[in-house]
Simulated assay, not measured.
Amino acid sequence: MSLPESNLAELALSIKRWGVELGFAEIRITDIDLSHAEAGLRAWLDAGMHGEMDYMAAHGMLRARPAELVPGTVRVISARMNYLPREAESGGEVDGAEDWRGRELRRLADPGAAVISVYARGRDYHKVLRARLQQLADKVKAEIGEFGYRVFTDSAPLMELPLAEKAGLGWRGKHTLLLSRTAGSMFFMGEFLVDLPLPVDPPTGAHCGQCSACIDVCPTQAILGPGRLDARRCVSYLTIELKSAIPLDMRPLIGNRVYGCDDCQTACPWNKFAQRAVLPDFDERHGLGDASMVELFAWSEEEFNRKMEGSPIRRIGHERWLRNLAVGLGNAAAAGARGDAAIVAALTARREHPSALVREHVEWALACHAEGPATGV
Protein backbone atom coordinates (compact mmCIF):
# COMPACT_ATOMS: atom_id res chain seq x y z
CA MET A 1 0.00 0.00 0.00
CA SER A 2 1.23 3.49 -0.85
CA LEU A 3 0.35 6.42 1.41
CA PRO A 4 1.64 10.00 1.25
CA GLU A 5 4.39 10.81 3.75
CA SER A 6 2.14 13.18 5.66
CA ASN A 7 -0.51 10.48 5.97
CA LEU A 8 2.12 8.01 7.24
CA ALA A 9 3.25 10.44 9.92
CA GLU A 10 -0.34 11.00 11.00
CA LEU A 11 -0.98 7.25 11.02
CA ALA A 12 2.10 6.68 13.22
CA LEU A 13 0.75 9.15 15.78
CA SER A 14 -2.65 7.45 15.67
CA ILE A 15 -1.08 4.02 16.20
CA LYS A 16 0.71 5.30 19.31
CA ARG A 17 -2.49 6.83 20.65
CA TRP A 18 -4.55 3.71 19.94
CA GLY A 19 -1.90 1.57 21.60
CA VAL A 20 -2.16 3.50 24.85
CA GLU A 21 -5.96 3.26 24.68
CA LEU A 22 -5.58 -0.53 24.39
CA GLY A 23 -3.48 -0.76 27.55
CA PHE A 24 0.06 -0.47 26.21
CA ALA A 25 2.37 1.85 28.08
CA GLU A 26 4.29 2.95 25.01
CA ILE A 27 4.50 2.32 21.27
CA ARG A 28 7.58 3.08 19.14
CA ILE A 29 8.54 2.37 15.53
CA THR A 30 11.79 1.20 13.96
CA ASP A 31 13.19 -0.13 10.71
CA ILE A 32 14.15 -3.78 10.28
CA ASP A 33 17.95 -3.59 10.05
CA LEU A 34 19.40 -5.81 12.80
CA SER A 35 22.68 -6.57 11.08
CA HIS A 36 24.51 -5.11 14.09
CA ALA A 37 23.05 -7.83 16.32
CA GLU A 38 23.90 -10.86 14.19
CA ALA A 39 27.50 -11.34 15.35
CA GLY A 40 26.51 -11.37 19.02
CA LEU A 41 23.67 -13.81 18.39
CA ARG A 42 25.95 -16.12 16.42
CA ALA A 43 28.65 -16.08 19.12
CA TRP A 44 26.07 -16.79 21.85
CA LEU A 45 24.66 -19.75 19.96
CA ASP A 46 28.12 -21.08 19.04
CA ALA A 47 29.07 -21.02 22.73
CA GLY A 48 26.01 -23.19 23.50
CA MET A 49 24.66 -20.68 26.02
CA HIS A 50 21.10 -21.38 24.85
CA GLY A 51 21.26 -24.81 26.53
CA GLU A 52 18.31 -27.07 25.67
CA MET A 53 16.47 -24.27 23.85
CA ASP A 54 17.10 -25.95 20.51
CA TYR A 55 14.65 -23.68 18.72
CA MET A 56 17.09 -20.81 19.24
CA ALA A 57 19.76 -22.54 17.17
CA ALA A 58 17.26 -23.96 14.69
CA HIS A 59 16.12 -20.51 13.64
CA GLY A 60 19.65 -19.09 13.59
CA MET A 61 20.03 -15.72 11.90
CA LEU A 62 16.37 -15.64 10.91
CA ARG A 63 15.81 -14.00 14.30
CA ALA A 64 17.71 -10.95 13.07
CA ARG A 65 15.96 -10.73 9.71
CA PRO A 66 12.30 -9.69 10.09
CA ALA A 67 11.77 -9.41 6.34
CA GLU A 68 12.66 -13.08 5.94
CA LEU A 69 10.26 -14.01 8.73
CA VAL A 70 7.43 -11.97 7.20
CA PRO A 71 8.15 -11.04 3.56
CA GLY A 72 7.29 -7.44 2.76
CA THR A 73 8.02 -6.13 6.25
CA VAL A 74 9.66 -2.69 6.29
CA ARG A 75 8.83 -1.49 9.81
CA VAL A 76 8.40 -2.98 13.26
CA ILE A 77 5.98 -1.38 15.70
CA SER A 78 7.38 -2.26 19.12
CA ALA A 79 5.07 -2.13 22.12
CA ARG A 80 5.50 -2.49 25.86
CA MET A 81 2.90 -3.21 28.52
CA ASN A 82 3.47 -2.89 32.26
CA TYR A 83 2.79 -6.03 34.32
CA LEU A 84 3.50 -5.17 37.96
CA PRO A 85 0.24 -6.29 39.66
CA ARG A 86 -2.10 -3.41 40.37
CA GLU A 87 -2.09 -4.03 44.12
CA ALA A 88 1.71 -3.75 44.27
CA GLU A 89 3.22 -0.34 44.88
CA SER A 90 5.88 0.74 42.42
CA GLY A 91 8.31 2.67 44.58
CA GLY A 92 8.65 3.54 48.25
CA GLU A 93 5.75 3.29 50.66
CA VAL A 94 2.40 4.64 49.59
CA ASP A 95 -0.32 4.81 52.22
CA GLY A 96 1.69 2.38 54.32
CA ALA A 97 1.84 -0.24 51.60
CA GLU A 98 5.07 -2.20 51.34
CA ASP A 99 7.30 -1.47 48.36
CA TRP A 100 7.05 -4.38 45.91
CA ARG A 101 10.80 -4.92 45.95
CA GLY A 102 10.80 -5.13 49.73
CA ARG A 103 8.05 -7.70 49.56
CA GLU A 104 10.04 -9.83 47.12
CA LEU A 105 13.18 -9.68 49.27
CA ARG A 106 11.16 -10.67 52.32
CA ARG A 107 9.76 -13.67 50.45
CA LEU A 108 13.23 -14.77 49.35
CA ALA A 109 14.35 -14.75 52.98
CA ASP A 110 11.42 -16.96 54.09
CA PRO A 111 12.57 -20.60 53.75
CA GLY A 112 9.03 -21.89 53.32
CA ALA A 113 7.83 -19.32 50.80
CA ALA A 114 7.32 -20.28 47.15
CA VAL A 115 8.88 -17.47 45.13
CA ILE A 116 7.28 -17.21 41.69
CA SER A 117 8.39 -14.59 39.20
CA VAL A 118 6.08 -11.58 39.33
CA TYR A 119 5.20 -11.78 35.63
CA ALA A 120 3.81 -15.31 36.02
CA ARG A 121 1.35 -14.67 38.84
CA GLY A 122 -1.43 -13.45 36.55
CA ARG A 123 -2.75 -14.43 33.14
CA ASP A 124 -0.52 -15.64 30.34
CA TYR A 125 0.92 -12.49 28.78
CA HIS A 126 1.18 -14.15 25.35
CA LYS A 127 -2.60 -14.22 25.01
CA VAL A 128 -3.18 -10.78 26.50
CA LEU A 129 -0.65 -8.90 24.37
CA ARG A 130 -1.36 -10.79 21.18
CA ALA A 131 -5.09 -10.01 21.47
CA ARG A 132 -4.37 -6.32 22.10
CA LEU A 133 -1.91 -6.13 19.20
CA GLN A 134 -4.53 -7.69 16.94
CA GLN A 135 -7.00 -5.04 18.06
CA LEU A 136 -4.40 -2.42 17.15
CA ALA A 137 -4.00 -4.01 13.71
CA ASP A 138 -7.78 -3.94 13.27
CA LYS A 139 -7.81 -0.21 14.02
CA VAL A 140 -5.14 0.39 11.39
CA LYS A 141 -7.09 -1.69 8.88
CA ALA A 142 -10.26 0.28 9.61
CA GLU A 143 -8.33 3.49 9.00
CA ILE A 144 -6.45 2.68 5.77
CA GLY A 145 -7.83 -0.60 4.44
CA GLU A 146 -5.96 -3.85 3.84
CA PHE A 147 -2.22 -3.92 4.46
CA GLY A 148 0.43 -6.55 5.17
CA TYR A 149 1.17 -7.33 8.82
CA ARG A 150 1.69 -9.92 11.55
CA VAL A 151 1.64 -9.55 15.32
CA PHE A 152 3.92 -11.40 17.74
CA THR A 153 4.46 -11.69 21.46
CA ASP A 154 7.49 -13.82 22.24
CA SER A 155 5.99 -16.26 19.76
CA ALA A 156 8.28 -16.07 16.73
CA PRO A 157 12.02 -16.18 15.98
CA LEU A 158 12.46 -12.44 16.33
CA MET A 159 15.07 -10.43 18.27
CA GLU A 160 12.52 -8.30 20.06
CA LEU A 161 14.95 -6.72 22.52
CA PRO A 162 17.33 -5.25 19.90
CA LEU A 163 14.27 -4.07 17.97
CA ALA A 164 12.77 -2.43 21.05
CA GLU A 165 16.11 -0.80 21.85
CA LYS A 166 16.44 0.50 18.32
CA ALA A 167 12.87 1.81 18.45
CA GLY A 168 13.68 3.79 21.59
CA LEU A 169 11.61 1.88 24.14
CA GLY A 170 14.71 1.69 26.33
CA TRP A 171 18.21 0.24 26.45
CA ARG A 172 19.62 -3.21 27.12
CA GLY A 173 20.68 -3.40 30.75
CA LYS A 174 23.73 -5.35 31.86
CA HIS A 175 21.35 -8.23 32.67
CA THR A 176 20.29 -8.13 28.96
CA LEU A 177 16.71 -7.06 29.77
CA LEU A 178 15.27 -3.83 28.40
CA LEU A 179 15.27 -0.85 30.77
CA SER A 180 13.19 2.30 30.63
CA ARG A 181 14.04 5.47 32.58
CA THR A 182 10.34 5.89 33.39
CA ALA A 183 9.30 2.27 33.97
CA GLY A 184 12.29 0.13 34.90
CA SER A 185 11.99 -3.35 33.37
CA MET A 186 8.72 -4.73 34.70
CA PHE A 187 6.95 -4.86 31.36
CA PHE A 188 6.18 -7.23 28.51
CA MET A 189 6.90 -6.53 24.86
CA GLY A 190 5.16 -7.34 21.61
CA GLU A 191 5.78 -6.63 17.95
CA PHE A 192 3.63 -5.61 15.03
CA LEU A 193 5.41 -6.18 11.69
CA VAL A 194 4.02 -4.07 8.87
CA ASP A 195 4.65 -3.30 5.20
CA LEU A 196 4.02 0.42 5.78
CA PRO A 197 7.05 2.78 5.58
CA LEU A 198 6.10 4.65 8.74
CA PRO A 199 8.47 7.27 10.16
CA VAL A 200 10.89 5.72 12.66
CA ASP A 201 11.69 6.80 16.20
CA PRO A 202 15.22 7.43 17.51
CA PRO A 203 16.84 5.09 20.05
CA THR A 204 17.56 6.19 23.59
CA GLY A 205 20.95 6.13 25.22
CA ALA A 206 22.08 3.63 27.86
CA HIS A 207 21.89 4.69 31.49
CA CYS A 208 23.38 1.89 33.59
CA GLY A 209 26.64 3.72 34.19
CA GLN A 210 29.00 1.93 36.56
CA CYS A 211 26.18 0.05 38.33
CA SER A 212 26.65 -3.72 38.53
CA ALA A 213 23.81 -4.56 40.95
CA CYS A 214 22.20 -7.10 38.60
CA ILE A 215 25.49 -8.91 38.01
CA ASP A 216 26.37 -8.97 41.69
CA VAL A 217 22.99 -10.27 42.89
CA CYS A 218 22.49 -13.11 40.38
CA PRO A 219 22.24 -16.24 42.58
CA THR A 220 23.84 -18.53 39.98
CA GLN A 221 26.27 -16.02 38.43
CA ALA A 222 24.55 -16.46 35.09
CA ILE A 223 25.42 -12.89 34.05
CA LEU A 224 29.03 -13.32 32.94
CA GLY A 225 29.53 -9.63 32.30
CA PRO A 226 27.61 -6.64 30.95
CA GLY A 227 25.18 -7.98 28.36
CA ARG A 228 26.51 -11.56 28.55
CA LEU A 229 24.04 -14.11 29.91
CA ASP A 230 24.67 -17.85 30.07
CA ALA A 231 21.10 -19.14 29.97
CA ARG A 232 22.24 -22.56 31.18
CA ARG A 233 22.94 -21.06 34.61
CA CYS A 234 19.91 -18.76 34.78
CA VAL A 235 17.25 -19.75 37.33
CA SER A 236 14.52 -18.89 34.83
CA TYR A 237 16.01 -21.33 32.35
CA LEU A 238 16.54 -24.03 34.98
CA THR A 239 13.00 -23.83 36.34
CA ILE A 240 11.11 -23.19 33.09
CA GLU A 241 13.00 -24.21 29.95
CA LEU A 242 15.04 -27.15 31.24
CA LYS A 243 13.09 -30.39 30.81
CA SER A 244 15.53 -32.76 32.49
CA ALA A 245 16.97 -32.93 36.00
CA ILE A 246 18.29 -29.71 37.48
CA PRO A 247 22.10 -30.04 37.76
CA LEU A 248 23.23 -30.90 41.30
CA ASP A 249 25.58 -27.95 41.56
CA MET A 250 22.78 -25.55 40.61
CA ARG A 251 20.17 -26.80 43.07
CA PRO A 252 21.48 -25.13 46.25
CA LEU A 253 21.84 -21.84 44.38
CA ILE A 254 18.19 -21.76 43.32
CA GLY A 255 16.93 -21.35 46.89
CA ASN A 256 13.14 -21.07 47.05
CA ARG A 257 12.71 -19.71 43.51
CA VAL A 258 10.28 -22.24 42.06
CA TYR A 259 9.31 -20.56 38.79
CA GLY A 260 11.56 -17.95 37.24
CA CYS A 261 13.71 -15.39 39.02
CA ASP A 262 13.42 -11.63 39.49
CA ASP A 263 16.61 -10.99 41.45
CA CYS A 264 18.33 -8.92 38.76
CA GLN A 265 15.19 -6.81 38.38
CA THR A 266 14.62 -6.44 42.11
CA ALA A 267 18.18 -5.18 42.55
CA CYS A 268 18.04 -2.75 39.63
CA PRO A 269 17.80 0.89 40.81
CA TRP A 270 15.71 1.80 37.78
CA ASN A 271 12.89 -0.42 39.02
CA LYS A 272 12.00 2.13 41.66
CA PHE A 273 10.14 3.61 38.68
CA ALA A 274 8.36 0.36 37.78
CA GLN A 275 4.75 1.04 36.85
CA ARG A 276 1.69 -0.93 37.83
CA ALA A 277 -0.37 -2.68 35.18
CA VAL A 278 -3.49 -0.97 33.89
CA LEU A 279 -5.14 -4.27 32.98
CA PRO A 280 -6.62 -6.68 35.55
CA ASP A 281 -5.14 -9.63 33.61
CA PHE A 282 -1.86 -9.32 35.52
CA ASP A 283 -3.39 -9.29 39.01
CA GLU A 284 -2.12 -12.13 41.17
CA ARG A 285 -4.22 -15.29 40.97
CA HIS A 286 -4.61 -18.17 43.43
CA GLY A 287 -2.49 -16.39 46.04
CA LEU A 288 0.71 -17.08 44.10
CA GLY A 289 2.38 -14.04 45.62
CA ASP A 290 1.95 -15.41 49.16
CA ALA A 291 1.84 -19.19 48.76
CA SER A 292 4.04 -21.64 50.65
CA MET A 293 5.96 -24.41 48.93
CA VAL A 294 4.26 -27.05 51.06
CA GLU A 295 0.86 -25.76 49.95
CA LEU A 296 1.75 -25.80 46.24
CA PHE A 297 3.56 -29.15 46.47
CA ALA A 298 0.32 -30.73 47.63
CA TRP A 299 -1.56 -29.81 44.45
CA SER A 300 -2.62 -32.83 42.44
CA GLU A 301 -2.12 -32.79 38.70
CA GLU A 302 -5.83 -32.04 38.29
CA GLU A 303 -5.57 -29.10 40.70
CA PHE A 304 -2.46 -27.81 38.96
CA ASN A 305 -4.08 -27.92 35.52
CA ARG A 306 -7.28 -26.33 36.77
CA LYS A 307 -5.70 -23.54 38.80
CA MET A 308 -3.03 -22.79 36.22
CA GLU A 309 -5.50 -22.62 33.35
CA GLY A 310 -4.63 -19.43 31.44
CA SER A 311 -1.33 -19.06 33.32
CA PRO A 312 2.15 -19.18 31.77
CA ILE A 313 3.09 -21.63 34.53
CA ARG A 314 0.95 -24.39 33.05
CA ARG A 315 3.36 -24.83 30.15
CA ILE A 316 5.95 -26.58 32.35
CA GLY A 317 3.44 -29.22 33.46
CA HIS A 318 2.83 -30.78 36.87
CA GLU A 319 5.94 -32.97 36.78
CA ARG A 320 8.40 -30.09 36.45
CA TRP A 321 6.32 -28.04 38.88
CA LEU A 322 6.93 -30.73 41.50
CA ARG A 323 10.60 -30.98 40.50
CA ASN A 324 11.10 -27.27 41.12
CA LEU A 325 9.22 -27.29 44.41
CA ALA A 326 11.19 -30.31 45.63
CA VAL A 327 14.41 -28.38 45.09
CA GLY A 328 13.01 -25.41 46.98
CA LEU A 329 11.83 -27.61 49.83
CA GLY A 330 15.26 -29.20 50.01
CA ASN A 331 16.94 -25.81 50.12
CA ALA A 332 14.75 -24.82 53.05
CA ALA A 333 17.02 -27.01 55.18
CA ALA A 334 20.02 -24.74 54.69
CA ALA A 335 17.83 -21.65 55.13
CA GLY A 336 16.89 -22.44 58.72
CA ALA A 337 14.13 -25.02 58.37
CA ARG A 338 16.13 -28.26 58.45
CA GLY A 339 13.94 -31.14 59.49
CA ASP A 340 10.77 -29.04 59.49
CA ALA A 341 7.95 -31.53 60.11
CA ALA A 342 5.56 -30.14 57.48
CA ILE A 343 8.26 -30.01 54.80
CA VAL A 344 9.55 -33.51 55.49
CA ALA A 345 6.00 -34.88 55.51
CA ALA A 346 5.22 -33.19 52.18
CA LEU A 347 8.35 -34.61 50.57
CA THR A 348 7.78 -38.08 52.00
CA ALA A 349 4.25 -38.11 50.57
CA ARG A 350 5.75 -37.73 47.06
CA ARG A 351 8.48 -40.33 47.55
CA GLU A 352 6.68 -42.92 45.43
CA HIS A 353 5.59 -40.53 42.69
CA PRO A 354 5.25 -42.22 39.26
CA SER A 355 7.80 -39.85 37.73
CA ALA A 356 11.46 -40.78 38.12
CA LEU A 357 12.31 -37.09 37.69
CA VAL A 358 10.15 -36.14 40.67
CA ARG A 359 11.37 -39.05 42.81
CA GLU A 360 15.02 -38.17 42.24
CA HIS A 361 14.53 -34.54 43.29
CA VAL A 362 12.43 -35.58 46.29
CA GLU A 363 15.17 -37.94 47.49
CA TRP A 364 17.73 -35.16 47.09
CA ALA A 365 15.53 -32.81 49.11
CA LEU A 366 14.97 -35.36 51.87
CA ALA A 367 18.73 -35.91 52.07
CA CYS A 368 19.12 -32.15 52.64
CA HIS A 369 16.90 -32.46 55.71
CA ALA A 370 18.49 -35.62 57.02
CA GLU A 371 21.48 -33.88 58.62
CA GLY A 372 21.54 -31.58 61.61
CA PRO A 373 18.96 -30.71 64.29
CA ALA A 374 15.29 -30.83 63.39
CA THR A 375 13.02 -27.80 63.63
CA GLY A 376 9.28 -27.32 63.61
CA VAL A 377 8.56 -30.55 65.46
Rank of each mutant, 00 (worst) to 15 (best):
L62G: 05
L62F: 01
A131T: 14
I116M: 13
R80C: 07
P66G: 06
D110L: 08
Y119I: 02
R63K: 05
A113F: 01
K127P: 01
S78D: 10
V94Q: 13
V70C: 07
M81P: 06
P85S: 09
E93D: 15
S117H: 04
L108C: 12
I116F: 03
G60D: 13
S117F: 00
R130W: 02
P71I: 01
S117Y: 00
E68I: 03
R65M: 07
K139M: 12
A114Y: 02
A109H: 08
G92N: 12
D110N: 11
E104Y: 07
G60N: 09
R107D: 07
Y119F: 13
H126P: 15
E68A: 08
S78F: 03
R106H: 05
R65W: 00
I116D: 09
D110V: 01
R65S: 10
V76C: 15
V140Q: 12
D124I: 02
L108T: 02
D99R: 08
I116G: 10
P111W: 00
R107H: 13
G60V: 08
K141H: 13
H126Q: 14
S90A: 12
R106G: 10
R121F: 00
V115M: 03
A120Y: 00
H126R: 11
S90F: 09
D138W: 13
R63F: 03
E98P: 04
Q134G: 13
E104F: 05
Y125W: 11
A88R: 14
L84Q: 10
V140S: 10
V128G: 14
V74L: 04
L133A: 09
T73H: 06
A131S: 15
G122E: 07
L136F: 03
D124M: 11
D99I: 02
E87K: 13
D95E: 12
K141A: 06
W100F: 02
G102V: 06
E89C: 14
M61F: 10
M81C: 13
V118T: 15
P85M: 05
D99H: 09
R132I: 01
G72S: 09
K127H: 14
A109R: 14
K139A: 10
Q134V: 08
R65C: 07
A64M: 05
R132P: 10
E87A: 14
A79W: 00
Y83N: 06
Q135L: 15
Y125D: 11
I77A: 11
R101F: 03
P85E: 12
R103N: 10
R132Q: 11
S78Q: 09
K141L: 08
S90N: 15
R106K: 13
K139I: 07
E87W: 01
A131D: 15
Q135R: 15
D95W: 05
R75A: 03
A97D: 03
P66H: 06
G72A: 10
D99C: 13
G92V: 03
Y119Q: 10
L133Y: 08
P71W: 00
A97I: 01
L133G: 14
R75I: 01
G102Q: 11
